[in-house]
Design a protein around this nucleic acid. Sequence first.
DNA 1: TTTTCACATTAACATTTATTACCAGGAATG
DNA 2: CATTCCTGGTAATAAATGTTAATGTGAAAA
Lengths: 247, 247
Amino acid sequence: MIETLLCRLENFQPLADEDRRVLQQALTPPVRMDRGEDVISEGERPEHVHLMIDGWACRYKLLADGQRHIMAYLMPGDLCDIHITLLNRMDHSIGILTRAHVAGIPRQALDHIYAHHPELTRALFWSTLVDEATLREWLVNEGHRPADQRLAHLFCELLVRARVAGLTENHCMELPLTQDELSDAMGLSTVHTNRVLQKLRREGLLTLRGRTLSVHDWQGLTEFADFDPLYLHLERSERMSDLLGGI
Amino acid sequence: MIETLLCRLENFQPLADEDRRVLQQALTPPVRMDRGEDVISEGERPEHVHLMIDGWACRYKLLADGQRHIMAYLMPGDLCDIHITLLNRMDHSIGILTRAHVAGIPRQALDHIYAHHPELTRALFWSTLVDEATLREWLVNEGHRPADQRLAHLFCELLVRARVAGLTENHCMELPLTQDELSDAMGLSTVHTNRVLQKLRREGLLTLRGRTLSVHDWQGLTEFADFDPLYLHLERSERMSDLLGGI
DNA sequence: TTTTCACATTAACATTTATTACCAGGAATG
DNA sequence: CATTCCTGGTAATAAATGTTAATGTGAAAA
């Protein structure tokens, strides 16, 4: 049930069977959720760390004028910030984008891991560092890249992340996001997102159809997007070249 | 020497004298640096956590076309990410913006704090959570707010952060950033930044002159910018109202 | 089948922001 | 004292993106 998470963490360092078991046993039973529900909403007190078992979610904020800004996509195997329970109130919401199952890690279970399983603790800290680095890369993306490069960069990232979690087949992945949801993350209008997607398709870089992303020209796409996967910190570099060469 | 840091951390929870002393003693002697130098550069291996003693710095990345994107401003009392030493290589650089002094916290000293000073550890974790939340707010800012609101929002944030670190006088703070540096953070051209600053000045919201930011209409500015300080997580709420009412 | 609905697409037009290029003032420098 | 450089300010034009509104399309629902 937590293969995707383990698969992701092991890009940082291999885990002992003991660590894998401890992590598995720390989880609360997964809860089934549907598109449109919030895992947790802005202003609420965070009681657990959440883990996406399957399905997709996003971090988002609502602005004064009702617009939604998506700040991160969570795919299967992704964790919410493991320190989150330190805070009194959430400053953003986590919303479900597809039918999904979400498990939790109670605070005490985490404290126990910190105290007794240093390797696993390091892997979890690594995971939050990657989340933070991803946030920084998104900031650069929105601040300095035009719409077409911006979307291209997002697709590069999502494909690598999916690959790392074992969720790709060749150059394809399930990508259950509407153009509206892409727009809210990229800070674009849906109309413009649509224009840009067509352009990327016309240029033979990728297609996005029927909830599936297919990248046709990985090298062309990464060059166009100025994509450098360093920020994903796949520290076991043999695997990094597997990943990137293999795509 | 670490008053600003302590001042900031105590917005989360009060610290025992013992914790204050431990933190003080963990520091390496501050190094003097000048504008244009890098504390650490992209690709380098992070050996320490850094602390700004005085002066300003920024996190930034250089893009393929040579543009610089600033992802965070570091003012006195700000720490780099305390987990950073887990990573093999920096995915961004930290550059000095003014004459400054920078101290370090060695990895072992931090490990010792984690093992023996839980209150202080919580405060340090809180600090990184705030940094991350700030990054998310910047993402929203760049993605969804027009240039004038965007700059206004930045100034709101900087004034509150400075206030929290004890660096304001009334409605004023030292803000040693050029319009170029503001532009690189906001994803705007310098020309447009200049136009917008004039507009904010004309409307009586603030002036930025001679390295000093003076806010003339705090309430007007926060309303215009849609600024909600929740994301700064000043958990001791009595202090929050002090801060915000008092400005 | 028909209807409905969510999502994608298209077009015309408006607005924001970038680009380029030039000027002005003040501080540092020789 | 002249010079240079950094920073801020201005204007004309171009490019990117937003807005509004209408249409198409395919899958689910009735």
